[in-house]
Simulated assay, not measured.
Amino acid sequence: MRRLVVACLAVCALLAGCGTTGTGSPLQVTDTLVAARPDRSPPTGTAPAGTVLPGPPADLSAFDPATHTLVLAGADRPALTLIDPRAPEQRSRTIALPSPAAGLHLTGGTVLAALPDHGSVARVDLRSGSVEHTAVPNRPVDAVETNGRLVVARQGSKDIAVLDGGTLVRTIGGFNGPARLLRQSRQEVLVLDRLATSLTPVNIVTGDKGAALRAGEGATHAVTDRYGRALTVDTRGGEFLAFATDPLILKQRYPVSGSPFGLTYDPTRDLAWITLTARNELVAYDVAGGQPEEKHRLPTVRQPEAVSVDPDTGTVYVASATGRGIQVVTV
């Protein structure tokens, strides 16, 4: 028995040491953290499903049902492109920004665009096109609003900033690469850290952080579904993950080959749409059951990095990051 106890203690010490080597993070074992990136797409061999509208290169997109506006952003374009898919013959609107956007979040007819190179978060009214800026230093990469406060993921200071009326009221640190924020409640957000490839619940009122969970080998995008879960794509590991959030527990893990990257969720049909950049494909999984069930698989435009959906009609919009257009698919 004594030998068994000693052996167990030795193993525990070894595991603890492995979990904290280098970075001090229990989720990483290396000093060199690299965020996952989408695979480069091959030339398209099959015509994209649906129709293709002209559009600029885009690696971010969002669809606002209230104004029926598709919002597009590109890593190299200091502007947002606004398109009404109902009237493709009309010219798209271009909203100039001081620098490219790194994150988009819709909030009641407006879109929040984090501008890391400008050190601000832009609030764009989708009806009027007016823009208001809130100064947020240290490279903001994503922003959401909850309980009347602006919550911002900051790459430069590796933290989450909470602002009230434009005034910084709290910072929550201890991250490696906070990249995406999911609003969970009036007091809590979920932080996707692309470098640590983890999810962490954060209380923005108290500043408390919950226990983080590893999200595969290289998580890149996450959304919430109508069941309160966090749906995540592991681009490096080729998986689709579903986490319950109260408490944070991994509930589903499903293989998705082809470099899954873009992700959106249709709450009306319980479909998670994922783009596969290595295959120029779009796949939809029904997530209402005990495990994801594939419902659709369609060819896309080349380098499909951004996808969004109209929850009223089920129409899906896929944007090419190389400027091959905006694909419109109705299934």
Results as ranks from 00 to 15, higher is better:
Ala101His: 06
Asp117Pro: 01
Ala113Thr: 08
Ala153Pro: 09
Asp117Val: 00
Gln90Asn: 14
Ala114His: 09
Gly109Thr: 11
Arg154Glu: 15
Arg127Gln: 11
Gly103Thr: 08
Thr81Arg: 01
Ser130Leu: 06
Val111Pro: 05
Leu104Thr: 13
Leu112Ala: 01
Val131Trp: 04
Val152Cys: 05
Leu106Thr: 13
Leu150Met: 08
Ala161Val: 08
Pro116Ala: 12
Arg139Asn: 11
Ser130His: 08
Ser92Trp: 08
Val151Trp: 02
Leu126Ile: 02
Thr146Lys: 11
Pro98His: 00
Ser120Val: 03
Leu106Lys: 07
Leu97Ala: 01
Ala135Thr: 15
Val111Arg: 02
Gly129Phe: 02
Ala153Tyr: 08
Gly119Asp: 13
Ala135Lys: 14
Gly103Arg: 09
Thr94Pro: 00
Gly129Ala: 04
Ala101Arg: 09
Ser99Asp: 07
Pro140Gly: 08
Gln155Phe: 14
Leu115Ala: 12
Asp84Trp: 06
Thr107Met: 09
Pro100Thr: 06
Ala135Met: 13
Thr107Pro: 02
Ala135Asp: 15
Ser130Gln: 13
Val152Leu: 01
Gly119His: 13
Leu150His: 04
Gly108Trp: 12
Arg149Gly: 04
Val152Ile: 01
Gln90Val: 01
Ala87Pro: 03
Val124Cys: 00
Ser99His: 03
Arg149His: 11
Val121Lys: 07
Arg123Cys: 02
Val141Gln: 05
Arg139Leu: 14
Leu150Tyr: 03
Ser128Pro: 01
Ala143Tyr: 11
Asp84Pro: 08
Val144Lys: 06
Val136Gln: 07
Leu106Arg: 12
Asn138Phe: 14
Gly109Tyr: 12
Val136Met: 10
Pro85Val: 12
Gly103Ser: 11
Thr110Gln: 06
Leu82Gln: 14
